[in-house]
Amino acid sequence: MTRLGIGWLAVPACVFCLLVFALPLALLLLESLRDGQGWTLDGYRNFLGSAYSWQVTTRTLRLAVLTTLICIIIGYPAAFALARARGVWQALFVAALLLPLSLSVIVKAFGWTVLLRSNGVVNRLLMASGLTDAPMRLIFTETGLLIGIANIFLPFMVLPIFSVIRQIDPRLTDAAATLGAGPIHGFTRVVVPLTMPGVVAGVTLVFSMSIAAYVIPTLLMGDRYQTLSTTIATSFLYLQDPQRGSVAGVVLLVLSLLVVGASVVLARKVRATP
């Protein structure tokens, strides 16, 4: 087989993805531009003109930003400890990250509904430690939701950063120290830039997944708390309003594409500046 011929091997997958994935998305875009009579921008006009839709969109974005922040604040230092762990310990820690990562989202969300209820474990711990006297309302609150979402996506932040740190030569920090850099300076100027590819990968994963999260908000917040995802689902499944659902879908799709696009640019930048 010639090298020219090898390109043809991609054809089946390509045709399949075009038909089952790209074509439906293109049709969705058309659907959002149509109503019963013909072509119209009304769907977008209604969506952009409604204060409620803006509220839903900003809420979705805020949720994704906060989740990403929580994940990086906990996940970044944790990845360093994970890279320093040795032998059996490191295997155990990696297993403890991989099991929740591979586990069904619904099972984890169910666990959180049990943990967060007013007579649940979290509240008992809080009261036993004397931090609060009365049970705190956690389930059906944004705090509870953030805890749940961060829990689902945290492994996707830790693992990419970990796999980058693993490859950093520890002698680099020693070299920085020999050249007179203090520990903080050596860390921020030498180590942090080297971990950036992992950070970009982790942030992209966590952000793009949390912006689209559906199961967790429905289970931890209920139907009244609308994000872009729940708007899409309710428009199609209950309200029979495909135009509204399609418009929300296109908005969410565009936001996700922007995230992916930004990550490609960032990843290139990070690789270019060692």
Binding site: R84, P100, G111, L154
Partner: peptide, 30 residues
């Protein structure tokens, strides 16, 4: 400073693992 940094990192990792396993442990317990 290096010691403090390491302590923070280990604390974050242990916290991470407890946090991640909590819903699993509770589910099995219930």
């Amino acid at each position: 400073t290096r010691g403090i940094g390491l302590a923070v990192a280990w604390f974050a990792l242990i916290g991470c693992i407890v946090f991640l396993l909590a819903p699993l442990v509770v589910t099995v317990g219930v």
